[in-house]
Design a binder for these strands. Structure first.
Lengths: 255, 255
DNA sequence: GAAAAACAGGCGAATTCATGCAAAAATCAG
DNA sequence: CTGATTTTTGCATGAATTCGCCTGTTTTTC
């Protein structure tokens, strides 16, 4: 965590730091900002209101959210980017020329898309506008966007049309970014997203779950799939790490 | 901290030292500069104003920030952004609650999506991942992404599937970003993009062409539509501007 | 449905700012 | 060198910003 000097900051500087903090953590509480920046919560509230008015952040009760998968937020700003780069490297080793891959959204997936070597000839199906853009930078990658209503929350396309489209596909891999993961399997908090992810799993020969270790052993309300449906679990940790012990034997391969 | 001699400095010298200090610390307070340089804060303020006018620094209340300090977080770096904002304002005036709007991609469209007021309740159909993300930031906007193969060049979804999807839609407006525009009509250079735009025009009650004046009187190889198919032409210029004279009477409304 | 947290808005103190003006300094012409 | 002209500077005034605190209201949470 970056330590902020206890010096006086100019207003604009403070707002820049707020944006930085939000990009880093995806969300932030007014009270935390008040502590970090050494000003009253009223001032923070005023800053957040201004930034929200400028469309730089999304203000909510109690704090603010990043404009989640905002294009203008650079990769390096994403939380735990180094860990996600490690995950990307491991994932990319699994990909061979000619494969067809189904992917969801999320910043981990974005790191994978970004790190992809240019000489790979593969076809990606995705429901995430951001991932589609990142993938489209690679000349030898064919990107198919599975259209539908774009969810305001998760910023991926959802709904029956998407699900039925996914059902028509037969992919080699399904690469899932993950929000909740424990011994019960993958979980998520958004109903519509769960429907899409379930369809993706059903339409793929192999399922790859990617997540930073921080999200291990967290449980969200809705079940996406059980552990035995997952073929690969990829984290930034080495496979022997203590944190991964509970999953040994329950998931086919841990990388 | 470099200590400045208690000698008298010439104005130019002083301003150079100010820039030096800002480059060194990324920011500086007027009060500090006043102390360091041994002149009144009024003088400092005047210097800062001059330097800001010359675009050398960013002046803020209480001092100044280095320009490299990323002050403009979003898309302010897109070419001719101010002009595009003017276009966006004009376009937004045409949009009423409940409308259905078809849009292509392009930075002008992005500016429109960005400037959209939050209280508008409208439905957008788009083929651009970037625009879909920008639109999805607005809570009362429903965004439908028309999926398909993402073109590596134009970064929008193209192909037969998209075109046939568009044919199923009946929209109030079709808002087109434009690459080529002259007395023959709208033109473009990418075959696949042209197919999509043609379909969009066919599926809309009214067609809005938006372009910065720079692109007026330019002709590209492929014809998208003729002038009489266009209902509104929106540029950053005032409708009476000389440059728009050739189009008076050929396009229904020029804004 | 009541306690706690977060909020909007107003107020006042402190700071910073814009502006006009006159003194000081620099520049220039002869 | 001298006097006139222009530029620069400091100061005074009132306006504008910023920010913490306060009040009463709304929202959240249990």
């Amino acid at each position: 965590m970056s330590v902020i000097e206890n010096k006086i900051l100019l207003k604009k500087e403070r707002q820049l730091e707020i944006i930085h903090q939000i990009n880093l953590h995806n969300k932030i509480l007014s009270s935390d900002l008040s502590l970090i920046l050494n000003v009253s919560e009223d001032t923070i509230r005023r800053d957040l209101n201004e930034l929200a008015l400028e469309n730089k952040i999304v203000k909510v009760h109690g704090g603010a959210l990043s404009k989640s998968y905002n294009v203008s937020a650079t990769q390096a700003d994403t939380y735990a980017y180094d860990e996600k780069k490690v995950i990307a490297t491991k994932m990319i080793k699994l990909i061979k020329d000619g494969m067809t891959i189904l992917t969801s959204g999320g910043t981990t997936m974005r790191a994978i898309a970004n790190q992809l070597p240019n000489n790979l000839h593969v076809t990606f199906f995705t429901v995430s506008p951001l991932i589609s853009l990142e993938l489209a930078e690679h000349p030898n990658v064919e990107v198919i966007f599975l259209g539908g209503k774009i969810s305001n929350i998760s910023k991926i396309s959802v709904g029956g049309e998407v699900v039925s489209k996914i059902n028509d596909i037969k992919a080699d891999f399904c690469v899932l970014g993950i929000n909740g993961f424990d011994q019960e399997g993958i979980s998520d908090s958004d109903y519509e997203v769960v429907q899409v992810k379930k369809a993706m799993i059903k339409s793929s020969r192999q399922v790859v779950a990617t997540t930073i270790s921080e999200k291990l052993n967290s449980d969200l309300r809705l079940r996406v799939c059980t552990l035995n449906e997952i073929d690969y679990l990829i984290t930034e940790l080495s496979p022997e790490n203590e944190l991964l012990k509970p999953y040994q034997g329950l998931v086919k391969y841990i990388l």
